[in-house]
Design a protein around this nucleic acid. Structure first.
Length: 419
RNA sequence: GUGGGUGUAGCUCAGCCGGUAGAGCGCUGGAUUGUGGUUCCAGUGGUCGAGGGUUCGAAUCCCUCCACCCACCCCA
């Protein structure tokens, strides 16, 4: 038997309704902030990601789906979308347009990791990018949009974590200073952290091993080492977020794994997720455009929602929903009635009503199916109704049944649809 | 890449000490004529993840492999 490949999965009907709802609501929120959708290719030149995401990141060193095209060029399935968006912006000079450049996207990303709860090799992200300004107001709005998208999806009880990781001026100084301190105390750290001291010193700050906490607590915080410009920027961002009434938690140890992040970084977590508890991650990337070869400086900030994880928590919050049934199930009795029913169904469908038709001529069976499909109403059309020019409309919840004319039928179902 | 757990019907699972498979749900049909949901009756359904070994006999014991899940790592 052929199965979906490891780390990929089918998203099936009852769930797809929820996915679509979440995506529609996200679009509505984005539009309310004047964001517009961008769709970039699912694969790009490998160089885009090695330069954009960073040569030494986990994503680039071990997680990319890279293949050689027939002409010998190296292509990669996108592991994230920010680099692609920036590439498109630079390529099409979208930054030349009036006003802020505000874009959103949604779609699948690919990373070859070992799957586990909340982690897939093909996963879906909903993200936004605001490009062209480094004003703290943009950061604040971005954080607000992120929270609003989650809220509109119905997510509650999430936590916003925020930090500043500095800039190319102050971060390297902090990292090398931190590394020096860590090397001195490496012996008292866990084995993972001893390795991190060399590979990813910032990550040590986020270690959860209890024995390491006393050491970690005495390490310097990046927030105490920001340069004046970064400090001012971050203070302004925090002030604006506070002013907007957004609850957040300052997390000086919050680390982002992608090289392009600088200054503001943030993350939203939810308790119902398991080890991979982050539903959203984001941050500022003022150096990305130039890393990709842009001659002009294009500061930007964005975030990305892990849609799979968002849906996972929503489903845990609400339980599994039953599939939504059609508005109307038509049960015609006999050949002639069937043809008349098909014509009626077309009219109703054009009016926006969801209609299903019976394939079985037995009324008992038809109503049984109507009930199983969770149809709201059943319409009976037999010889009697054909002769009289009307229909029997049965309410499948109350069991009430009444004779209705064509106009009354449309009236009833339109009302149902509007409500 | 490294650990740990689990693999029996479409789904959720029982089957502990070896004697060639069960339940609930689902699905199909029926309880007469053009009326669903509840109920009752019947039926459908599984090379017990795969291969090998021990044994008169293996879903059950042993080995190997595979798949999925969870965790590490890292991230969305």
């Amino acid at each position: 038997m052929i199965r979906a490949v490891k780390g990929t999965r089918d998203i099936l009907p009852p769930a797809t309704d929820l996915w679509n709802r979440v995506e529609q609501q996200a679009r509505a929120v984005f539009h309310s902030y004047n964001y517009h959708e961008i769709r970039t290719p699912i694969f790009e030149e490998t160089l885009l990601f090695t330069r954009g995401v960073g040569e030494d990141t986990d994503i680039v060193t071990k997680e990319m789906y890279t293949f050689t095209d027939r002409d010998g060029s190296s292509l990669t399935l996108r592991p994230e979308c920010t680099a692609s968006v920036m590439r498109a912006v630079v390529e099409h000079r979208l930054d030349q347009q009036a006003g802020q450049l505000k874009l959103y996207y949604m779609g699948p990303m690919f990373r070859r990791e070992r799957p586990q709860k909340g982690r897939f090799r093909q996963f879906y992200q909903i993200g936004a990018e605001a490009i062209g300004s480094e004003a703290p107001a943009v950061d604040a709005e971005m954080v607000e949009v992120a929270a609003e998208v989650l809220r509109s999806a119905g997510l509650s009880d999430f936590q916003l974590l925020i930090n500043s990781v500095g800039c190319p001026e102050c971060r390297p100084k902090f990292v090398s200073g931190l590394q020096a301190r860590l090397r001195a105390v490496a012996a008292s750290l866990c084995s993972d952290c001893r390795r991190r001291v060399e590979t990813n010193p910032l990550r040590v700050l986020d270690c959860k091993v209890p024995g390491d906490q006393p050491v970690i607590d005495r390490l310097p915080s990046i927030l105490d080492c920001l340069c004046a410009a970064c400090r001012d920027h971050f203070d302004a961002v925090l002030a604006l977020i506070t002013d907007r009434g957004i609850a957040f938690e300052l997390r000086p140890r919050l680390v982002r794994g992608l090289d392009y992040y600088m200054r503001t970084t943030f993350e939203i977590t939810h308790g119902a997720l398991g080890a991979q508890n982050s539903v959203l991650g984001g941050g500022r990337y003022d150096g990305l455009a130039q890393a990709l070869g842009s001659k002009v400086r294009l500061p930007g900030i964005g975030f990305s929602i892990g849609e799979d994880r968002l849906l996972m928590t929503l489903q845990e919050q609400a339980g599994s929903a039953a599939q939504e049934g059609p508005d109307l199930f038509i049960a015609p009795l006999g050949e002639e009635a069937f043809r008349a029913a098909a014509r009626l169904a077309l009219g109703l469908r054009r009016a926006g009503v969801s209609v299903e038709m019976a394939l079985d001529a037995r009324l008992k069976r038809s109503l049984e199916v109507a009930n199983k499909l969770r149809a709201r109403y059943a319409l009976i059309l037999g010889a009697d109704e054909m002769a009289a020019g009307n229909y029997q409309l049965k309410d499948l919840i109350t069991g009430d049944q009444q004779t209705v004319s064509r106009d009354e039928l449309f009236e009833r179902l339109r009302a149902r649809h509007a409500g």
